[in-house]
Simulated scan of single mutants.
Amino acid sequence: MTVKLSDAVFDPWQEIADHQQAAGIAGKYGATAVFVGTMRDFNQGDSVCGMYLEHYPGMTERQLQQIVEQAASQWQMLDTLLVHRVGQVEPNDTLVLVAVWSEHRGDAFDASRFIMENLKSRAPFWKRETLANGKQRWVETNSSGYKRQS
Rank of each mutant, 00 (worst) to 15 (best):
A99E: 05
D7S: 06
Q70P: 03
E69Y: 10
V83I: 11
A132N: 14
N118F: 05
H55C: 10
W126K: 12
I67A: 15
L78Q: 06
M39A: 13
G27Y: 13
G58M: 00
Q88N: 11
Q74W: 13
F10R: 00
R137K: 12
R105E: 00
T2Q: 08
V36Y: 05
I115A: 12
D110W: 07
A111V: 14
G37E: 07
L97Y: 06
E140H: 12
K120G: 04
D7I: 02
A33T: 01
N118R: 02
E61R: 03
S150H: 09
R148I: 14
Q20R: 11
L5I: 11
L5Q: 11
L95E: 13
W126C: 14
Q20S: 03
I16F: 03
T80V: 10
A111T: 01
R148G: 15
Q14C: 09
H55V: 11
G37C: 10
K120D: 00
L64C: 00
A132Y: 14
Q76C: 11
N142K: 15
S121E: 15
H19T: 03
V98C: 03
F109C: 02
Q20A: 13
G50T: 11
L95K: 12
I67Q: 00
Y29F: 10
N133Q: 05
D41R: 07
E103C: 13
K4E: 01
R128Y: 14
D93Y: 14
A33I: 10
V100E: 05
V86D: 03
V98E: 00
Q63R: 09
S144L: 11
W126N: 15
K28F: 12
E129T: 14
G27P: 14
Q88H: 06
G24K: 13
G87C: 01
N43K: 06
N43P: 04
T2K: 14
D79E: 03
V100A: 00
Q65V: 04
L82T: 14
A31W: 04
